[in-house]
Amino acid sequence: MLPGESADLHIYEERYKQLLKDILKGDRQFGIVLASPLNTRNLGSLVEIIDVTKRYPGGEADIIVKCKELFYLKKFISSYDADSLYPGGLVEELLFDDYLCPKALLFEFEQYKEIRDEQYFFVDTITLHQLALKLPMSEAEKIEYVKCSTFESRVSYLRSFIKYLKLIEIQEKNTYHSIYLN
């Protein structure tokens, strides 16, 4: 998850039911690491529980979490402490600064929305990360975005990604139009 991104989670495993119980007593934050071969750098998201939307009789729960920041998992620990069923780890904060989005990139995004026949209200104060959250990025694409180490490389990545999305939208419209005419 990228900073500012929210997700709905269903907590059903015993270890995570115990984690939920423990963190609701404290600061309501925990880490999620993407378990995927794509995540070669062990990137993770520090998330905060925004809401517990439903509790079930067996201790299961539906929750909403929001990513606060990113980290690297330096060491995985299979049990957080002697009494816990859930894992833990040693982490290092990933400094992932956010800056205002350049107007040229916002213009590219606005063109993409026009192709999709969606309205986007041009806002000068949107940040680069906020723009990234508005794009339909896969896990792999989010990882590539996070790997960009400079502001310029992030802008370049998002510009290329938006151009790619625009091409796909145009191709889909052309295909639909060709099929419709038949």
Rank of each mutant, 00 (worst) to 15 (best):
P3I: 02
Y12T: 04
Y16N: 10
Y16Q: 04
Q18C: 02
K21E: 07
K21N: 09
D22L: 06
I23S: 03
G26V: 04
D27G: 04
R28A: 00
G31Y: 02
G31H: 04
V33L: 06
L34R: 06
L34W: 09
A35K: 14
A35N: 13
L38I: 05
T40N: 11
N42R: 15
E48M: 06
V52T: 12
R55A: 03
G58M: 06
G59C: 05
I64S: 02
K66N: 03
C67V: 15
K74Y: 01
I77N: 09
S78M: 09
Y80P: 01
Y86S: 05
Y86W: 08
Y86V: 05
P87F: 05
G88L: 04
G89V: 10
V91S: 00
L94K: 13
F96V: 05
F96M: 06
Y99K: 14
L100G: 04
A104W: 08
L106S: 02
F107W: 09
F109R: 02
E110P: 00
Q111C: 02
K113T: 11
K113F: 05
E114S: 13
I115P: 00
D117R: 15
Q119A: 08
T125D: 12
I126C: 02
H129Y: 01
Q130K: 13
A132E: 01
L133A: 05
S138Y: 09
E139W: 08
E139F: 11
K142Q: 11
Y145P: 01
V146Q: 00
V155I: 14
S156G: 10
R159V: 00
F161T: 10
F161D: 00
I162A: 04
Y164D: 12
L167V: 08
I168R: 14
I170E: 14
Q171V: 09
E172R: 15
N174I: 12
T175S: 10
Y180W: 12
L181V: 09
N182S: 10
